[in-house]
Design a protein around this nucleic acid. Structure first.
Lengths: 221, 221
DNA sequence: CCGGATCCGTAACGATACTG
DNA sequence: CAGTATCGTTACGGATCCGG
């Protein structure tokens, strides 16, 4: 089917499944919640449609990805992570940590707040699971939400399914600065670049918990 | 040079550097100690020589890989991991963990004890760094050695540079069974499939510490 | 002989058009 | 909207060739 390294090594076999172009970015997208085929295509600029279809079929075989019926009216078909897909969380976290050490991206790159927020979630300390305020984030028109439930932090694209207890609105540059700790909630509020609806203390706690401290909190050996 | 996703996302940027075919397997090989160009080529069956040269040059740019002079007589040129390469240890560990959940490899795959031992080292618990006995392992003619120094576990291919305190000799199948805990040192010794030179208690401790317990000791979130 | 560079056939990818 | 079909382009794999 797909080209294999034909090695017994676990690393090589993992890469047999995950190592081809776009594969882990599909997993990244679905780590942000279930999506429709067309949404995936739109969020992976440059990827051809036939390739996306082939990758999804491939990943289904390993239960990395699973077909599902999306919630809400319309019973639309979509894709979500399977059990072997959610098991990729530590791998995605390693990639985020390592990628954080690279030079800053060239201007003109595609950017989405959801990617930054996913990186924040993946590298957040364990206490972040107790952040139980439903928080909606709107960055430059893009909206997403998250909530900790004591077990893990749910993070999905789109508007919050219930009325959020905290709502943060900003532009991309400000959000990036907040994410990396280059600015603070107070400064961003004072300059009008960040709007906070809800408790300002909660907003401060939010960025304290999820901030992409770079260099990273070395995990592993 | 190489094709990029052109996304600001840290995952995508990490994959811009690491995501192409063979790249992480080169890192895996160099995680087993410095090597010469020809050795890398021999240990990566199927890889073309021009591609290896291109990958090495690419990885040098990011200090994942570095040119070096090999120890020993001859002052031969070789390659070793750079700082950004050794920083890939947690990523390799994640791949090992995830790959361990896949179906067993098809027969006829390439196999080396060094790959299994690297997987054991990457997923071993922290106490393994205190395993300070120089241990040489010979599996089916292939030899490698390792030693903990209290900080980390050094693991390299080839014979031990000093007289080992423990020496284990077996065939591939037996070593695999010992690595995955499907057999014990005592059983393998009793059946003559494993020869232990040195303290048998140390040999037992060795496999206790490094055994690829599958399912894994969940690390990360 | 080792460390590559060159060349060329094949397989993978990317863009667009097309179909149920 | 969710894919399949087609086709030009790029990347890879294998063999051969070259300089120290």
């Amino acid at each position: 089917m797909t080209r294999s390294y034909e090695q017994t090594c676990r690393i090589a076999r993992a890469l047999d499944v995950l190592g081809e172009r776009w594969t882990l970015l599909i997993v990244r997208e679905l780590a942000l919640g279930p999506r429709r085929y067309g949404d995936l295509l739109a969020d992976l600029p440059g990827m051809g449609t036939s390739l996306l279809a082939a990758r999804l079929r491939h990943l289904e075989r390993y239960d990395v990805v699973r077909r599902t019926v999306l919630p809400g009216p319309g019973r639309a078909a979509g894709y979500e992570l399977g059990d072997r897909g959610t098991a990729l969380t530590p791998l995605l976290a390693s990639l985020v940590e390592w990628g954080g050490g690279l030079a800053p991206p060239p201007p003109g790159s595609f950017d989405r707040a959801a990617w930054t927020m996913l990186a924040m979630r993946l590298t957040a300390p364990g206490e972040a699971v107790d952040f139980d305020t439903v928080t909606e984030i709107a960055v430059d028109g893009e909206t997403l939400w998250l909530q900790g439930d004591g077990e893990r932090v749910r993070l999905e694209t789109g508007p919050a399914p219930v009325k959020p207890g905290l709502r943060l609105t900003s532009g991309r540059a400000t959000f990036q600065a907040l994410a990396t700790g280059r600015t603070t909630v107070d400064d961003a509020m004072a300059s009008g670049e960040l709007a906070v609806q809800g408790d300002a203390d909660r907003a401060r706690l939010f960025f304290d918990l999820f901030s992409l401290t770079n260099p990273s909190p070395t995990h592993g050996r």
